[in-house]
Design a protein around this nucleic acid. Sequence first.
RNA 1: GCCAGCGUAGCUCAGCUGGUAGAGCAACUCAUUCGUAAUGAGUAGGUCUAGGGUUCGAAUCCCUACGCUGGCUCCA
Length: 642
Amino acid sequence: MSHLIKLIFNGKEYETSSGVLKNIIRELGIDSKVVGGKIGNKTLVDLFYEPNDGEQIELITIDSPQAMPLYRHTMAHIMAQAIQRLYKGVKFAIGPTIENGFYYDVDLPKTLNEDDLKLIEKEMNKIIEEDISLEHFVMKRDEAIQYFEEKNQPYKVELIKDLNTETLSIYRQGDFTDLCRGPHVPSTGLVKNFKLLSVSGAYWRGDEHNKMLQRIYGTAFYRKEDLGAYLKMLEEAEKRDHRKIGPQLDLFSLHPDVAPGMIFFHPKGTIIRRELEKFWREEHTKAGYVEVITPMVMNETLWRQSGHWDHYRDNMYFTEKEEQSYAIKPMNCPGHIMIYKTKSHSYRDLPLRMCELGTVHRYERSGVVHGLFRARAFTQDDAHIFCAQKQIESEIVGIIDLIDKTYKLFGFPYKVELSTKPDDAMGSDEIWEASTTALKSALEHLGMEYQVNEGDGAFYGPKIDFHVRDSIGRTWQCATIQLDFLMPERFDLNYTGSDNIEHRPVMIHRVIYGSLERFIGILIEHYAGAFPAWIAPVQAIVLPISEKHVEYALKIGKQLEDSGIRVEIDERSQKIGYKIREAQLKKVPYMLIVGNREMESDSIAVRMRSGKDLGSMKVHEFIEKISEEIKEKYQKSIFEVK
RNA sequence: GCCAGCGUAGCUCAGCUGGUAGAGCAACUCAUUCGUAAUGAGUAGGUCUAGGGUUCGAAUCCCUACGCUGGCUCCA
């Protein structure tokens, strides 16, 4: 006898016999908002699904976050349908959902632009209004190939031919039929809130040897507010763009004609960078690191030995002198290895934690450079830890402590990902096993949640990546910790154990900021240019009301400067409103306004960049407060915190 | 590198179907000496990314190069 199917909905359990989910639900009289279900903890199905005997399905409604993939996937089909109606001869490739929306790749003789997107949106709205029911059915392989050949859909035919199944899942909504695994919502009228965002090129199957198709990106949400919030986030991100704010705040400039993909840090940007470096040095010294400086240009032979010449040559810059070929370093590890090798090491020396703010150059294809985020020259806050196998775990714990401390400073929550042995790995299974276990137990020891990416490690060792989440919800990969068995092997690194025999150390590569440039870019966008006082290029600006107060302003400025505060004085003959506006736009944390009242009482009127007027206070009082704020590296103004 | 869009003053942008460049802000000068987000007047500033072509005439049309933007790909 057959087992019953169990459905779970709103905490209630229903037992039923076989059939298509849609019909089962109708018979049970369950809420019409149900659009699909979840089997186990991952497989999503829609109402066309026919449950197997004994299967347990948790039903999901259209307004739940879990239904998002169905919602957006159907939206992608509606977009495709609209395109099919509007443009003749369109050939469809793939149209999946992605993190914040969906896209569809199409092959179309006409190149689409913004106006076309509006037209497509209009047609999509029509399709939604038409409330077309979706149908699902299967075709036999040959039948499907013939069907899509007749419809002149070569990409679909290619997809089918690559699939090793005898039957293919097909969805149809009115005049549009697509090869599709699903799942979908049952009707086009169920979806509503969407927006098409952009068109761009994308290679068929991501291979640059293939034809370039047009990819149309869109986003969709069940709730209109969520769509609005998402669009607002995009807008906010645009406003915070570091490539815009950076030059506006006089932090850095780019000169693509002179040095494409490289950064010119202005005095103000340099202050931020030096503050980050200062913090970094202090913490690394405390954590037992030694700092080194290695050459920018090293002989090609070194890079051959390290393996970079074989694996990384295309990304390297070379230069020639005295008939010798040199490479500009793309990584710091070989330099550190040279230092390690200058003497014999004992187990007592380990772990040896060698760090360097090492500027590296990597050739990046012209289309990919992007402000501070993706440069051709950047400075890594790099370190290599040479240690014994059994020290790995405690070293990892130490690194994570450092990372945690650093990210907390900026208020970045973060996610951790562990990547394990890939197929093309080098090194024995035992070593991989042991080190992966060491990484895991370090994470568990610290009680950290993490996601495992099986097979995603580097070929030379497993790694842990850290993704920070910025103030508008975007995530960025910054820190990474990578174990390396290969380099010690290639360079024949040794240390003498307590057993008086030679052992091979393990190398741990790690960065915390990642790259100073990129991290500064992230900070600019995270804070929208309004940096905490300790890294703010100008911490306070003195604004005299009129010329009569300039002398007093200079005196105040001097006092602050003597206390180590970065201060400016705006002596221009402008109205106070004008000066405030400018200081505000420059995001200076504190404006110190001085006029007759302040002169008489030997005080200053303090205004915060938030617009809040703190009223007047004695100069020494302000200096004490801001000094504490700077010293303690507060995220927010001390006047708001306390 | 590839696809698409774009390139006009330091910045933001006008400049219709070709008739030899315009605004606001910033800068500079002068006046103003002002109490919490823009005082007024004046001055200066452009080989319209570069090179070629079509034309009596090109910022405008065409071609090429370079750069930028959004993606593909890659990555810190």
